[in-house]
Amino acid sequence: MNTPMQPMPVTTPPRQGLLGAWLQALATVVRDKGVLLLLVGAPVLYGFFYPWFYADEVLTRVPVAVVDRDHTSLSRQITRFADADPRIEVRFVAASEREAQEALWRGEIEGYAVIPAGLKRSVVRGENAVVSIEANGAYALLNKAVQYGFAEAVGTVSAGVEIRKLQASGQSAPQARASRAPVQLQMVALFNPTEGYGSFVVPAVALLILQQTLLMGAAMLTGTWVESGQHRARATTWLGRLLALCTLGWASGLFYFGWIFVLHDYPRGGNPLGALALLACYIPAIAALGALLGLWFGNRERALQVLLFTTLPIAFVAGFSWPVEALPELLQWLRWLLPSTSGVQASLRLNQLGAPLSAALPYLCALVALGAVCAGAVLALARPSSTLRPGA
C-alpha cells in the first residue's frame, strides 16, 4: 500500500554573519580562476593595454597628395603650406586626379586636394576660386585630419592674398590685418586640452570596462552557486556576497580613477569626492544586477556567453559615442536599466568636467534605485526554502 509522501525538510546553509559571508565569497573568487580573471585580471590588463592604442591622442602627418593643375606660384605656395601643416604630409604632387585616386585606393594616401587650372588668374581678378578636397570617408579621424589640414593651408594662403590686396589699396599692414579679421576668435578646449581622441573615449569606456568585467564575474559566480545549490541562502549571506563583489569592484574603480588616468594624463580630478560618491553608487548596482542575471541564467557558462557580446551595444546606448537623440525612443528609455548609462554621464561630469555633486545627483539616484531593486530581487529569488515540493 502506497503512503502519501510527506514534504521533506531541506538542509539550509549554516548561519553566517556578514563578515563570514564576505570572507567566504572572497575565498570562492580566489579559488575560481575564471571569475578571478574577470574581476581582478581583466580590469588590470584593460587598464594598461586599452589606452595604449590611443597614446598618440591626435593624428599627425597623415599622408596626402596634391593635384596641381594651375602650376603657378600660388598653387606651389598652397602645397608648401599644406606640407607645413602638422596634420598632413604631402607625399607627392600628382599630374592628374586619376593618379591621386589610384594612390588613395591603394592606401598610399588618405586624401588629396585638387587645385584647379586658372586659380591664380581668378584670384587676381577677384573671382571666387574653389580648391576641392577629397578624403577617405571610411575612417572619420583620418578624414577629419585631411579636411582640416588642407582647409588651414588654403585658408592661410587666402588670408595672405586678402591682406596684400588691402595693402595695395593704401592700408598699412596692421590696418589690413584688422580689416581682414576685425573680430579675433580664440577657441579653447576646456575639458580636453589636447583635443585628443584618447582623452575623449577612454574615461567613458573605463566605466564600461568596470561594468562588463564585474557584471560577467558576478553572473558567473552566481551561476556556480546555482549549479551547486548554494544560491539558496539567507539575506545576511547574500549581503556578504554582494559586499565581496563590491569590494573587488571598488578596488578596480580606484585603480582607474586614482592611477590609470594619472598614468596616461587624462583629464581628471575635477571633483574627487564626487567621483568617490559615484563609485559608491555605481559598483553596488552592477554587482546586484550581475547576481540577478546569474540567478536567471542558472549556469556560469551561459552567463558569460550572453554577456560577452553586449559590450558594443551598451557602448552605443551609453550616450557618449552616439547621439542619444538618434536612438529609437524605446531604447532611449530601456537604456536607463543599465548602470553604465547613469555611470558614464555622472563620471564625465564629476571626474572630467569638475561639476558639483548636485549636477550628477539625478544619475546617482538612478544608480541607487537600480541597485536597490536588483538587490531586493536577488534576496527574494534566492531566499531559502523550508521544504521540497512533493515528489521532488
Results as ranks from 00 to 15, higher is better:
Ala235Trp: 05
Leu239Glu: 00
His231Lys: 01
Trp259Phe: 15
Leu245Asp: 02
Leu254Pro: 12
Phe255Glu: 14
Leu245Cys: 07
Gln230Thr: 05
Gln230Asp: 10
Arg234Thr: 08
Thr247Gly: 13
His231Asp: 13
Thr237Tyr: 00
Leu239Gln: 05
Leu245Glu: 06
Cys246Gln: 10
Leu254Lys: 12
Arg232Asp: 03
Ala251Val: 15
Gln230Lys: 12
Leu243Phe: 08
Thr237Asp: 02
Gly253Glu: 10
Tyr256Thr: 01
Ala244Ile: 03
Trp250Thr: 09
Thr237Ser: 07
Leu254Ala: 15
Gly240Lys: 02
Tyr256Gly: 03
Leu248Glu: 09
Leu243Pro: 01
Leu239Asn: 05
Thr247Cys: 14
Ala233Asn: 04
Trp259Arg: 13
Phe255Ala: 14
Phe257Trp: 14
Phe255His: 11
Ser252Asp: 12
Ser252Tyr: 02
His231Pro: 03
Leu254Ile: 12
Leu243His: 02
Leu242Ser: 04
Ala233Thr: 06
Arg232Tyr: 08
Ala235Gln: 02
Arg232Ala: 09
Trp250Gly: 08
Cys246Lys: 00
Ala244Arg: 01
Cys246Val: 14
Phe255Asn: 13
Thr237Ala: 07
Leu248Tyr: 10
Ala251Arg: 07
Ser252Gln: 10
Trp250Glu: 12
Arg234Cys: 05
Arg234Gly: 14
Ala235Ser: 07
Gly240Thr: 02
Thr237Gly: 03
Trp250Met: 15
Gly249Trp: 09
Ala244Phe: 03
Gly240Asn: 02
Cys246Trp: 10
